[in-house]
């Protein structure tokens, strides 16, 4: 079937098998490989991307379901000038990543979380990341990165 998606601002049209998952569309058709597959069961969040601005796990969304909609992946987060998004910058400064495999999904989940709740508490961050598994960091610095990104975005500074 034919699907038409806007990925990181770019229109992509392709004929795909009906059962094509969004994550495979992103990786194999759009050739954007930052988005990783970690579990196939919507458990680990490695494949988290934004669909019309909201986080989804792209291993459990069909490309067909995303037809006509806009997807943002990790590759689309930095500014056109190449400046990192506050969440990416916070991950770097707070050592929020080690092997990097969960990172694209984790970053996208936090971007979405902070959009919904610009100044979360630590507990709110931890609960908000319950669907994203990291095996390297023990989450300590991921949580710090999320709080730092919130603070650097201004609105979180008061809490």
């Amino acid at each position: 079937m034919k699907v038409e998606l806007t990925v990181n601002g770019k229109d992509i049209t392709a004929d795909v098998e009906d059962r094509t998952l969004l994550v495979h569309f992103l990786r194999d058709v759009a050739d954007l490989t930052a988005t990783n597959i970690g579990c196939d069961t919507t458990s680990c969040g490695a494949c988290t991307v934004l669909l019309d601005g909201e986080s989804v796990k792209s291993c459990t969304v069909l490309a067909a379901q995303a037809d006509g909609r806009a997807v943002t992946t990790l590759e689309g987060l930095a500014s056109d000038a190449g400046e990192m998004h506050p969440v990416q910058r916070a991950f770097h400064e707070e050592h929020g990543l080690q092997c990097g495999y969960c990172t694209p999904g984790m970053v996208m989940a936090i971007v979405s979380l902070l959009k919904e709740n610009p100044s979360p508490t630590e507990t709110e961050v931890r609960q908000g990341l319950e669907g994203n598994i990291c095996r390297c960091t023990g989450y300590h610095n991921i949580v710090r990165a999320a709080l730092a990104a919130a603070a650097s975005s201004g609105e979180g500074a008061s809490r």
């Binding site: 990790l74 190449g82 770097h92 990172t103």
Partner: peptide, 17 residues
């Protein structure tokens, strides 16, 4: 802070797949 990170954070790592 790590030299590895900018690449992992902007274009993602290059794993086997």
């Amino acid at each position: 802070i790590r030299t590895e990170d900018p690449r992992l954070l902007t274009s993602g790592g290059v794993y086997v797949d």
